[in-house]
Design a protein around this nucleic acid. Structure first.
Length: 458
RNA sequence: GUCCCCAUCGUCUAGCCCGGUCAGGACACCACCCUUUCACGGUGAGAACCGGGGUUCGAAUCCCCGUGGGGACGCCA
């Protein structure tokens, strides 16, 4: 059995979105699973829409997701060039083959591919024009995911535009032949096109690759497939929001594929081991950002301390470069981040979640303040805390807890009686790490200042 | 409109191929527990075989027809 060769063939005409990412991912998984080769081919035959900027988005997104390619731009290979805009010579050569075989003709300045069979003129209501139908045998494709699919391709189609540029169907097939692609793994939106492609393969006398049409990702709200304009569709958005690429990849794997049991969070090596084309679902999947967010949290929770701190710092640098957090000592920054790691769902919560730990200029949640001040005698508690502060043992979380409990006991109270007002004083809010951790991290002096400031304000 | 694909909780899905399970898990939602706030976590609840025929002792599972969803029908890819 010869080596598997698959390709991911994006067109740099838009941003890189979730659907493209999953197609790339499934090709990558299959290549890695079989020990085959992943080819990256840039389909930039449409000069009007092509752009270097979009091309870089593709490279960066694949890179971020960890989907490396074995052949293609930047990687090289024996079947290049890998940008279709640089392959005109190849297309000319293949076009000559079709011409020599009598399978083309010119009309309106464009080159058409000629089907073989009896021809009749019919009026097409939808397109409001007369078209030529050709009586041909149905094209059969044995799709690895869908099984046997039969479709009749009964109209000639353009393969070279009047401006001389070849179109998608033609270059796609020519390159799959020239690059010796063995498996075509692509979105189901191409299933109907496949009959055109099969006709071309046959006209070239080339062996058919195996086809595997994967289900589409539907937009979360409203009808239809996800497009680059939809909310949450772009890969770069997740990159920007500090999502872990491993979490996104894991999530994407589970959209249309599963290991056959209940496992969800899985190391990529395990996914590669189990992944196979026939295991892919046949039905479309709706995108669910809540589940993605959950997967991201699970990965965040599982990150080793150093890696989490590193990610956190990168996030701050990207989004809050002027944040006091980045001015803080590395050890302090680390401590605050590790306090936050088990509490947050995404890195994007970090700046707001930790802001009061890096500045004295933090706001107070008015609703929270009202609530806390309305219950018990918070001013008295504040006074007691300040008076007893010098005697509190700040050496560890448990020491702080014990000494506050002791202080509370002297007044016939419990820890809880001091908690909410103390938290309000040191953080201005009611969400955050445990109070003892906040005390310890802030240190006695800053805690004193904050307690006194609140007492003075009420 | 024509052609192609698909159909299990709100969502992602297991089970289907090789008919016999209280139709399982996860996200979301709700309740309770844990708790020093907020989360995490734990327990529990509610929640699905699209409809109709057929085959069969027996159908989520096999077949047919509806219906619904999706896609394609460009000198876009």
């Amino acid at each position: 059995m010869s080596q598997v060769r698959v390709r991911f063939a994006p067109s740099p005409t838009g941003f890189f979105h979730i659907g493209s990412a999953r197609t790339a991912l499934f090709n990558w998984l299959y290549a890695r699973h079989t020990g085959g080769v992943l080819v990256l081919r840039i389909e930039d035959t449409d000069k009007e829409r092509n752009s270097e900027q979009f091309l870089n988005v593709i490279y960066e997104s694949l890179d971020w997701l960890g989907l490396n390619w074995d052949e293609g731009p930047k990687a090289g290979g024996n079947f290049g060039p890998y940008r279709q805009s640089e392959r005109s010579a190849v297309y000319r050569e293949y076009l000559e083959k079709l011409k020599a075989a009598g399978r083309t003709y010119e009309k309106d300045g464009a080159v058409w591919f000629k089907l073989i069979g009896e021809r009749t003129e019919v009026f097409d209501e939808r397109r409001q024009k007369t078209v030529t139908k050709v009586k041909v045998e149905p094209t059969v494709i044995n799709d690895l995911i869908r099984g046997r699919v039969e479709r009749v391709e009964d109209e000639d189609f353009i393969i070279v535009r009047s401006d001389g540029n070849p179109v998608f169907h033609f270059v796609n097939v020519v390159d799959d032949i020239a690059m010796q692609i063995t498996h075509v793994i692509r979105g189901e939106d191409h299933l109907s096109n496949t009959s055109k492609h099969v006709e071309l393969f046959k006209a070239f006398g080339a062996p058919l690759p195996q086809f595997a049409h994967i289900p589409l990702i539907l937009k979360q709200n409203g009808p239809g497939k996800m497009s680059k304009r939809d909310q949450g569709a772009l890969i770069e958005e997740y990159q920007r929001r500090g999502y872990l690429p491993a979490a996104l990849v894991n999530f994407l794997c589970l959209l249309g594929w599963n290991p056959g049991d209940d496992r969800e969070k899985m190391p990529i090596e395990e996914i590669i081991r189990l992944f196979d084309l026939p295991g892919i679902n046949q039905s479309n999947a709706r995108f669910d950002d809540k589940k993605l967010a959950h997967m991201n949290m699970v990965y965040l929770l599982g990150l080793p301390a150093d890696r989490f701190v590193e990610r956190a710092r990168t996030y701050f640098q990207l989004h809050a470069a002027d944040a006091p957090a980045l001015q803080a000592e590395a050890a302090y920054f680390r401590e605050v981040m590790l306090l936050s790691q088990p509490k947050i769902k995404g890195l994007e919560e970090l700046p707001a979640y930790t802001q009061y730990l890096f500045t004295e200029d933090y706001g107070t949640d008015p609703k929270m303040k009202e609530k806390v001040m309305a219950r018990g005698d918070p001013k008295a508690r504040l006074g007691e805390l300040i008076a007893g502060l010098a005697a509190l043992d700040f050496s560890s979380d448990s020491a702080i807890e014990e000494s506050i409990k002791a202080l509370a006991a002297r007044h016939g109270l419990g820890f809880g009686d001091y908690q909410s007002v103390a938290r309000l004083a040191v953080s201005g809010t009611n969400v955050g790490p445990s109070l003892t951790s906040l005390f310890r991290v802030l240190g006695k002096e800053r805690v004193r200042q904050r307690l006194e400031r609140l007492l003075a304000a009420v």
